[in-house]
Amino acid sequence: MKGNAIQRRKMRWEFPFHMMLLPGVLVTLVYAYGPMFGIVMAFQKFDPVLSFWKSKFVGWKNFRYIFHLPEFNQVLWNTVLISVLKIGFGLLVPLLLALLLNELTKNGLKRIVQTSIFLPFFLSWTVLGGVLLELFMLKGPINSLLSGVGVEPIMFMGDGNWFRAIIVGSDVWKGMGYNMIIFLAAIVGINSSLYEAAEVDGAGKWKQMIHITLPGMAPIIILMATLSLGNILNAGFDQILILYNPIVYEHADVIDTFVYRLGIFSQQYAPAAAIGLFKSAISLGLVGFSYFLAYRFSNYRIF
């Protein structure tokens, strides 16, 4: 009897917690778990009128279809190539900037540099895409600068290799402020007595960077590299969507943009969902693996 009363009191105590969580749970249930359940459409001959519930199941047919699409391999390769380049430069450039910025002694200048590097991070790809297209147009300022030094105008947005370079470069440009802040925070966290000791021992600034700063930052560098592993199949959907055009599809089409065109424009819902599932499944594996590594080596936990 007494145990029961305690149980009831505990439930009364916890009741407000359930109430507070209710709205968040409902939204998540419908708009996060709903689509997860909706993945069954990848195995259906999906008919929007019949929806998930009544469409006919066709097994792996959609998957066989997508793997035989002529673009599939190219799209997969573009995705991995673009995102690996983005991850590599996206870590390297901010690391370099953080090290250089840390050498500045004037705080005012440091602030200005940091503020301006960080700005593009907060702007949308529509704005940045608009700016980039103005700059790199055939008759834009970049080409007119180049013609000043005698270079023929380049069709940046119509040449696959230039286009990829712009995609990677502008992504690094947008994101470098963010990673730089994290690296700077890591540098600040290094014990300053290490530097004093090194100075007494006669180590110059260069040696201090190699032997103190970089090893001190190693855990955070490794952590960030590991966590970005899960993004290998995310090559930047809205960036590419706003910047690309049919001429560069062959070099710039990535899984997400391909799914969008196949699913929404061509209305091939089920095959597009099948590609989406293919991507989510691999990403899940990668994310799981990367979090395992991050937990193992950096003791990183989200919750």
Binding site: K10, E14, F17, H18, L21, G24, V25, T28, V30, Y31, A32, Y33, G34, P35, M36, F37, G38, I39, M41, P48, S51, F52, D256, V259, Y260, G263, I264, Y269, A272, A273, G276, L277, K279, S280, L284, V287, G288, I302, F303
Partner: peptide
Amino acid sequence: RFRTLYVWFFAITMFFGGGLIPTYIV
């Protein structure tokens, strides 16, 4: 007591999603 249960409920959505097309249909 139900904290862990809820945490998992939300955490799963950070690692796995339905993707563009099923979300659109929902």
